[in-house]
Design a protein around this nucleic acid. Sequence first.
DNA 1: GAGTGGTCTAGACCACTGT
DNA 2: CAGTGGTCTAGACCACTCC
Lengths: 285, 285
Amino acid sequence: MDSQPTAVQRPIQLRIADDLRMSIESGELRPGDALPTLGEITERWSCSMNSARAAVALLKSQGLITSGRGKAPRVREALPRVVRSSERHQEEKDLAARPMRERASTGEAETTMGMSIQDQAFTSQYDTVEATDDLARVLDVPSGEPLLRRRYQARDVSAGRLLSSSVSYIPRGLVDGNPAILDEENEPWPGGTQHQLSTVGVEIMQVVDEVTGRMPTTAEAQEWGLPEGVPLLICRRISLDGDGKAVEISDATYPADRTELRFVIPLRPWQTYPPNDYPGKGEAA
Amino acid sequence: MDSQPTAVQRPIQLRIADDLRMSIESGELRPGDALPTLGEITERWSCSMNSARAAVALLKSQGLITSGRGKAPRVREALPRVVRSSERHQEEKDLAARPMRERASTGEAETTMGMSIQDQAFTSQYDTVEATDDLARVLDVPSGEPLLRRRYQARDVSAGRLLSSSVSYIPRGLVDGNPAILDEENEPWPGGTQHQLSTVGVEIMQVVDEVTGRMPTTAEAQEWGLPEGVPLLICRRISLDGDGKAVEISDATYPADRTELRFVIPLRPWQTYPPNDYPGKGEAA
DNA sequence: GAGTGGTCTAGACCACTGT
DNA sequence: CAGTGGTCTAGACCACTCC
């Protein structure tokens, strides 16, 4: 009579975690507040230490709370989100057509995120790699074709943690015409990639951003200084020329707890205003 | 001599997890392959069951492996990703201007994702809510202003799991002019929201998508049938009229392991081709 | 130094999978 | 039914925080 066919009894750790979550969502526990200690949990729910731990660990893995040795776990406070807008693509294109003085001055200020520029360390590494099947398909070149790979990172100087990270791929055949592009000593190039490509006769006419997400590896979490339970946003930017041919791929990762990707899409006006009819129209008043 | 000041010894669970991860990344363990059993792990790394569990649990929380009672944990196989493209916004706008017959036929086929339409159950619920501070700010109305809230869900009929879920908010003041819009019995409305708004004289001229991500709650993971370690993509779509005024907000959630959000951004052509100059240009040959 | 959480062990019971 | 992983307990040691 008492035993249900499924879910005989919800595991104690889940019940604890749900109760705690409700305390948080109801506002009983506010961001920054400390959770009950493990000892208190064992008492209140009459369970073992390990079950109490498991409950807290679950909430941690869901990104709800912070933790640390010897410190009481606390309800996580939301970080301000840095907005990365798709409008930057057009701005960079406009900039590329400006005189060099102007291009040089506007250069890398883009990457600031509430930090002054001297607190950040920028690195760029150039090399040539063979196109993987994945990259070759998008760039429409044979697998194994040589690609110029450029890796960019910005780090917080004091904490040593990653602030931004991206990898760009361009077919060598496209840029071999201008050896200056192949030299990482020329970074930061005034006017960015779009100006670089202009020197070999390429104009980017369309950008496609492909966004998805996943959990970081242990190593990634450490490099970014990510708390547990924070996913990464994965963004692949494909730049196309006037013929719709992909000329550059740029893969970037962003911590989801402090990033918002914004895409602004203009729509063409209606040529004729939509007809004002629909099912039920004019039936009952 | 042997004891370092920090990180005296990396926790055994992390070492196990890293070793297993390397096996996966090197291709030694391929997608679908079973991991070593807990017993084997305790032997190979001479640790306790719980440490072996902890290592496997870590990989699970990073989305690398699947698991289940009595079943060996396996290397997760990537799911095919459903692409949601920003080009749909323009397509929906174009459709709204078509005759009703055409609008009605193209209606809801959009949501298919490799499933036939009769395997899916669509629900829509309408009600009126007061604008939260958050919504009010974006829609530029006073807090507490009445909003038409429309909740849409699609479910896999056989498994009962969520396939898509979104919530839309429109100020009541905008749509009160056409009571038909307030009636959920009129779903699916032929031509969608953009046609609905056209009946009260509103034309969407710009769409802004704001994308971020987070881990699902326990309840969300269950509703979507999400394996552990899979984040949600959070997408807020803001529709603007010709004056740049926000007229609709639509919040949607997507499982990151089976979704790709794609944004296509056209760029305006250069008016003047960029000058071919940069630092170092013409110095050494 | 007292109290906290992080790591780890040993051992138990149960639900489920596969044969 | 044997073997597996999921849940849970009790108890230990250590690193760290805060007082």
